[in-house]
Nucleic acid binder design. Structure first.
Lengths: 124, 124
DNA sequence: GTCCATACTTACCTCTGCGTACGTACTTAC
DNA sequence: GTAAGTACGTACGCAGAGGTAAGTATGGAC
């Protein structure tokens, strides 16, 4: 539970409790406001940029592009661009992305379901 | 074409895709950098402030206090303070907190396990 | 010709996440 | 007397999150 004593151990498995562990970076991307929504939205299948933008209501183009690049950099989604006249780009989850999205959606679902009870318990 | 009675149904469950939904607030707290670590740390049982601080390496006192207050406000953990000479405060998860922490830990665990594969797939 | 849609990028500006440093009130240890 | 541990609160400041507006290239609708 404490700081890993061996360098080799750290390379084998991540440790979110360790400040320098790259797993914190991935976790940051996956649990970011827009990262969560993008992952869940893409669980339904491939989507285009503008479709994602409409689905994750409230996201700006800037943040959506940045979020997509981060998740692509983490190997969680793939970008397919077709060189056609009106730009056409498709985003879909990799196998890793599917697994991550599953966990993220489970959490989001739980919050959505429990929200009324939480709100009631939190402010009496 | 208005159905005010149906609106109440919408209030029953959260929707993270809706910008104004309070579930986004809870999600923000739960998935924040320190929120994640606190929830996971407290799955092992009750902990004191300084114990949490040591466990979640890298957190500042300021951020830990703020994170704890947010999670308490969401009804995910309870704070018990004993009026003794050196301050003694205990934090533990509520039932809701246990459930939330379970999902969060599942996600963190997944990232920790897949990290080497992700890193390999992400930088060719 | 003008407007719109697509998938971005860049410049600019605001807001807040977060660390640092210090203060508090008290006790124990040196 | 000084330091340290406990559980915070507060003031300061930087860096990054994140919104808005504009630009790019191109074809179709009007």
């Amino acid at each position: 539970m404490d700081a890993p004593s061996r360098l080799a151990d750290r390379m084998q498995r991540g440790d979110v409790f360790a400040p320098r562990c790259p797993s914190r970076e991935v976790l940051k991307h996956v649990t970011s406001t827009w990262g969560v929504l993008v992952l869940i939205a893409l669980r339904g299948g491939t989507l285009r940029f503008s479709e994602l933008r409409r689905k994750a209501a409230g996201v700006s183009e800037r943040m959506l592009a940045q979020t997509l690049q981060q998740l692509e950099g983490d190997g969680l989604l793939v970008r397919r661009s077709y060189p056609v006249v009106p730009p056409h780009v498709e985003y879909s989850l990799t196998e890793f992305g599917q697994e991550a999205a599953q966990h993220v959606e489970a959490l989001a679902d739980w919050i959505e379901e429990r929200l009324p009870e939480l709100a009631k318990a939190a402010e009496p």
